[in-house]
């Protein structure tokens, strides 16, 4: 391996490792941190390509931060670059979560701490609800979107339908709705 290749691989690992270690509450929060390193500091990609990859990362299914690492890694150094950047993005999360899970199991959840855990769990489920609200602010801008949201909610919460199935159905519904809408409007899309 040439020295230059090793340097770029190390940088890819380092950038995504750093982003994965020092950002909390999900992959989206990582993007601005990564952008600064990739575009300004190490000049691995120009800003336009990075922004395109960042958008693509959110469009594809899967872990957003990992999608982003894979795009950047692949375009900078091929398959090896993709794997190295991807490993960097998930490494801390994996190791620290294993440690946290072991510690959590060691903590006696009885006695004095039982109440604390019950309080934390109630707050924790409230924060998931709050995540639905903040996502809803951006994604519920049409009557169609509201109907899909409510149907998905009802099916999973009261109908025992699997979430995976609902996602597939929602994708089909979106495809049909957009095409019917465009037929009615008579728009010719390129």
């Amino acid at each position: 391996m040439k020295k230059k290749d090793a340097v770029i691989l190390w940088r890819l690992f380092y950038i995504f490792f750093k982003a994965g270690t020092f950002t909390f509450a999900g992959g989206l929060a990582m993007l601005p941190v990564i952008e600064k390193d990739i575009v300004e500091k190490y000049k691995i990609l120009d800003k336009d390509s990075f922004m395109e990859y960042a958008t693509l990362s959110q469009t594809l299914p899967g872990v957003i931060a990992l999608n982003c690492a894979s795009f950047v890694g692949y375009s900078a150094a091929g398959i090896i670059g993709m794997l190295v950047a991807g490993l960097g993005a998930v490494f801390s999360s994996f190791v620290l979560m294993v440690v946290a899970t072991i510690l959590l199991q060691r903590v006696a959840q009885e006695g004095a701490l039982a109440g604390a855990f019950r309080g934390i769990r109630a707050a924790s489920s409230a924060l998931i609800l709050s995540a639905a609200f903040s996502l809803g602010r951006y994604n519920l801008k049409s009557r169609f979107a509201v109907i899909v949201m409510i149907s998905a909610f009802m099916m999973v919460a009261f109908g025992q339908v699997s979430a995976l199935f609902v996602v597939i159905m929602a994708g089909v519904a979106g495809y049909i709705y957009q095409n019917v809408k465009n037929k009615i409007r008579g728009d010719k899309r390129i």
Partner: peptide, 8 residues
């Protein structure tokens, strides 16, 4: 939008 419903 389905994702919002799923999370809720």
């Amino acid at each position: 939008p389905a994702a919002v419903g799923l999370i809720a």
